[in-house]
Design a protein around this nucleic acid. Structure first.
Length: 283
DNA sequence: CCTGAAACCTGTCTGC
DNA sequence: TGCAGACAGGTTTCAG
């Protein structure tokens, strides 16, 4: 489930809490249960555990698809990859009655209000880090899509610097940080650009529209609390507003032409052949 | 520099 | 019913 809007939704839930999920800021960590050491990227499990115990959670942040939990000392970072999820649930007061880990729970962080932060990740692709300085984990990321410092002109120049297909380029986190398969397809549709368009063929006005489309698509995703697909995650409903993603064969909402599906960079890619015409490069 | 394929994992769905 | 194959919201690494 995790592209930028889904991670942002989780950040907000963990920050503000919900009826059955206490908020995180202000909590102190009492104990840690690491069920799958492979999910821990850094440091070693014993260092990770002993450092966390006694720490106080102060802030919740997000950088692209990373969730950042700021502690009174150090930062806990999570990347959900394909199937990860993060949530807080109550723990019963009796230590003998605390609910057992469900399938695919990889980490429990036990808190001082009889609740626990759970990292659940079916496919084990997700990772977490404990770092003195989060920048050490985030150093390869490109600009944040909503960063006002990313201007249309700058985005245009970055596009022209490469000669790459738009779909893989937009999903390259060092080029732009936060888009994944869903929101890339939806943003390209909104911009009327074919996913195979070469980035150095994009005009200034197309680049302007593309950046605007990316921001509008991500904002719409956030406004709907992200997308809920398959068995993972259940919060948002942006999946009810997809124009092209997983809509193969259905009529384009703009022109009625059937949506097509191709594979680009090993990822399913959905687009309207009429609204997003493929303009081949002149030889 | 760019593209495509494979790897890392588990689960669901489809078609024969 | 069983089973093989395709497919899934991500990222890294390697070959050509």
């Amino acid at each position: 489930m995790p592209e930028l809007p889904e991670v942002e939704t989780i950040r907000r839930i963990l920050t503000n809490g919900s009826p059955d999920s206490p908020s995180l800021p202000g909590r102190r960590i009492n104990a840690v249960s690491l069920f799958n050491p492979g999910s821990l990227a850094d440091p070693a499990p014993d260092v990770f555990t002993s450092f966390l115990i006694g720490r106080k959670i102060e802030t919740l942040g997000r950088r692209s698809k990373f969730l950042l939990i700021g502690l009174d000392e150090g930062t806990l970072l999570f990347h959900l990859r394909m199937s990860g999820n993060l949530f807080v649930e109550p723990e019963l007061s009796s230590e003998y009655d605390s609910p057992p880990p469900r399938p695919h729970d990889r980490l429990h962080v036990h808190l001082d209000n009889q609740s626990r932060l759970v990292f659940n990740d079916t496919r084990k692709f997700g990772r977490f880090w404990l770092a003195a300085n989060p920048a050490s984990v985030l150093s390869k990321l490109g600009p944040e899509p909503f960063d006002p410092a990313l201007t249309e002109e700058q985005f245009f120049r970055r596009l022209r610097k490469h000669k790459r297909q738009l779909k893989p380029l937009l999903m390259d986190q060092s080029f732009l940080a936060g888009l994944g398969n869903i929101y890339t397809d939806e943003a390209l549709f909104r911009a009327g650009l074919h996913p195979l368009t070469l980035s150095n063929r994009v005009t200034a006005s197309q680049a302007r529209l593309l950046l605007k489309s990316i921001r509008e698509t991500l904002q719409a995703g956030i406004d709907h609390n992200g997308s809920s697909i398959d068995w993972v995650y259940g919060g948002g409903n942006f999946q009810n507003y997809f124009n092209v993603y997983q809509q193969s064969g259905k009529p384009c909402p703009q022109c009625g032409q059937p949506i097509e599906r191709i594979v680009v960079g090993q990822r399913g890619t959905h687009f309207c052949p009429l609204c997003q015409p493929y303009l081949r490069e002149e030889t």
